[in-house]
Design a binder for these strands. Structure first.
Lengths: 226, 226
DNA sequence: CCGTCAGGTTAACGATGTCAATCTGAGCTC
DNA sequence: GAGCTCAGATTGACATCGTTAACCTGACGG
């Protein structure tokens, strides 16, 4: 913890990099706020002097970026785990897993998604993660539940889920329903069915009341036993 | 600008509060990053010494909070402007206006929505703004396009739009479509129709391919001339 | 004309990110 | 085993930040 770290042996310098990263992650998770992520605090926790951090990270931003890469990796793992079966249902499982992870690691999610990204370009880990989202969507396009460009559709779905969890995290004082799981479900279904539906609709809509009646009919049609 | 401010006359102390707020807003808008919002920079811009800010704001957080209140007010104004006519269409207009404002004022939006809110409770201006969202949704429940608790539905719709603009702002490097207006439209339609649809669907869904066929039929049904 | 006190200012503190200069000891050579 | 070397650190300092305490000042009522 505060105990001084024994100096690494020759050739094992990079070990410190891992230890610093771990210290940073622990600090984030335990403190519950990114303000606690000070170079001094991280270094102290790693049992090392403050400027030693600069041996492995060019600046604080780079350290934070490295922490983020791990989170992207975690999301990738989650997506891989939840694939398989009907693509539409699989996509829903992925979205729910994403939301659950974000809500379970609010500080990390905040750092990942709500920080002005200084580095230009999409980090490879993030690109890989997004690629998985796009693939899952593409599978739905294949079965024709979705239509359109998988990348654009994926961005839309991601927007919906991210919006929900990021609002939950950043604006916790709003009158959220008590059951977060149910809210996530609502959002995921909204996004899924909305995406499936909107591309099929005519440009000119009927007035609200007529639309409502049509939707009722459609719902009843789907509910018929098959 | 940098010119020293003439001392306010007796009883006109609060004038400085306004000038400081203006200086802070200008600084945010011009610099393009919240990092530029330093007490020293704000004070300099207001033509006043740094600790003078403390005469009107208990700390930096309070200053930022005050800036946010203005943005909430702006959203309220936007909503009021876009009401009227068919509730479903009005809601869409409000959502589009919200998104447009956010994208036109990215730094302000970031400060408003992506900053850990220190003050407990929802600020009145934010509550008022949310009340307007809920009202607009309630009107849609009235015409039966939407079903369920207006507050929960409003949170869902807000999530979708917020998710889109906040991702656009925080992750600009992702492969967003060139036409932002079109993307916003996609999201708004997705959220609107998804919300209208999902509560009417049976718990057990048909497999993707059958669902796709049903949606096609429904789309064609809506497109029939009436 | 003079005292008061609203409306400021000056000077300083501790914390933070960052950098230049310095130390140190593990492992090679002889 | 003595001595050299340089990877792997440390020390000390700087500028900037938010914040506080102590002090100044000049417009206005008496």
């Amino acid at each position: 913890m505060t105990t001084r770290r024994v100096r690494a042996r020759r050739g094992e310098g990079p070990l410190l990099r891992e230890e610093i990263l771990r210290a940073a992650e622990d600090l984030l998770a335990e403190s519950g706020t990114e303000d606690a992520l000070t170079l001094r605090a991280v270094a102290l926790r790693a049992g090392v002097s403050t400027p030693s951090v600069y041996l492995h990270f060019t600046d604080k931003e780079a350290l934070v970026e490295a922490v983020c890469l791990r989170v992207w990796g975690e999301f990738s793992r989650l997506f891989t785990e939840n694939l398989g079966g009907d693509p539409f249902l699989a996509l829903g499982r992925c979205a729910r897993a994403y939301a659950r992870f974000a809500l379970d690691h609010p500080v990390q999610y905040r750092v990942l998604m709500m920080r002005p990204s200084a580095a230009p370009g999409v980090p490879p880990a993030a690109a890989e993660c997004f690629r998985q989202m796009v693939n899952a969507v593409a599978a739905c396009v294949e079965t024709r539940v979705f239509e359109g460009d998988p990348e654009e559709v994926a961005l839309g779905l991601w927007s919906a889920v991210h919006g929900c969890v990021s609002l939950l995290i950043a604006q916790p004082e709003f009158p959220w329903p008590r059951d977060r799981e149910a809210l996530i479900n609502q959002i995921v279904r909204m996004a899924g069915f909305g995406t499936a539906l909107y591309s099929r609709l005519p440009a000119k809509l009927p007035p609200s009341r007529e639309l409502a009646a049509d939707l009722d009919t459609f719902g009843a049609h789907l509910a018929r036993d098959r």
